[in-house]
Simulated scan of single mutants.
Amino acid sequence: MPAFQSKTFRRAATESSSLSERIGALYRARLARHPFILFGLPFITVIVAGSFALTPAAALRYERYDRKVKQLSQEEAFDLGLKGPDGEAGIKRNPRRRIVGDEKEEYYRLMAKDLDQWEQKRVERFKGEPDGRL
């Protein structure tokens, strides 16, 4: 008889080894042979499914924010100067629109500036605020 048996060791199924332990052991044994199918594919699936699940939630968030921003009463609009007392639109301004006129005009205006001759100026600080000087 040889010194060691040729049979592999397997724990006897006792009451202490529950179903979840047996499934976990089986999963770990198979994971070594098929890592992408048992780990990579479920991981990628969760990421893609999460992206699809969170898209409506993000859209809902921005829609709620837009609704909250758009709701102005007549008095608030008048106070902000958006509508005149007769209900007509007052000052029309778009803070996001900085370029006045044609984009090419603005480009050439910026290109004409002399960038070699400039002077650095410090921003004025409030009283008591440290200015960063040593």
Rank of each mutant, 00 (worst) to 15 (best):
T8M: 08
R96Y: 09
L38Y: 12
E15K: 14
K104C: 01
W118C: 01
P2T: 03
I91Q: 14
Q74W: 12
A53E: 00
K70P: 10
Y62A: 02
A3P: 00
T55P: 02
R97H: 13
A57E: 03
E21F: 03
A53D: 00
L134S: 09
K92Q: 03
G81K: 09
G90E: 08
I47E: 02
E76D: 09
S6D: 15
R67M: 09
R109S: 03
T45D: 06
R64V: 01
S20T: 00
K83H: 06
E124I: 13
T45K: 13
K7Q: 14
K68H: 02
I91N: 05
R28H: 06
K83A: 09
L41C: 05
Y62P: 00
D79P: 04
G40P: 02
K68Q: 04
E63C: 05
I47P: 06
E129C: 09
L54N: 04
K7V: 12
P2C: 04
P56L: 05
K7L: 11
R133N: 12
A77M: 12
D79M: 07
Q5S: 13
G50D: 04
I91M: 10
A12D: 05
G101E: 04
R10F: 12
R11D: 15
L72Q: 11
A32F: 01
L110R: 13
Q117C: 01
I99M: 02
E15Q: 10
Y107I: 10
D79F: 05
E106N: 09
T45A: 11
S51N: 04
R10C: 09
F9P: 06
A29W: 13
G24I: 04
R22E: 03
T45Q: 12
G24T: 14
L41W: 12
I47H: 09
A29M: 10
R93F: 09
V48E: 03
I23T: 11
Q71L: 12
V46F: 11
E76N: 07
P42T: 00
P95N: 07
Y107E: 10
A3E: 04
F52C: 06
F52V: 12
R61Y: 10
S73M: 06
A53H: 05
E21T: 02
Q120V: 14
D66Y: 03
K127R: 09
I47G: 06
E103N: 08
V123G: 05
K7E: 15
I91Y: 08
E76W: 07
Q117H: 08
E103C: 01
L82H: 12
Y108F: 08
R11Y: 14
I37G: 15
R93T: 03
V123R: 12
R33Y: 14
A32D: 00
R97G: 11
P130W: 04
G128F: 01
F4H: 07
L110F: 11
F9R: 11
A12T: 05
G132F: 07
K68P: 00
L80W: 11
P85H: 07
A77W: 04
T8I: 05
G132Y: 05
G90L: 09
V100P: 08
A77L: 13
F39V: 14
P2Q: 04
T8E: 12
E88H: 15
L82A: 14
E105L: 01
G84K: 15
F52P: 04
G90K: 14
D114E: 05
T8H: 10
V123D: 03
F4M: 06
G90F: 08
F39C: 04
E105N: 01
E75C: 11
Q71C: 08
E105P: 01
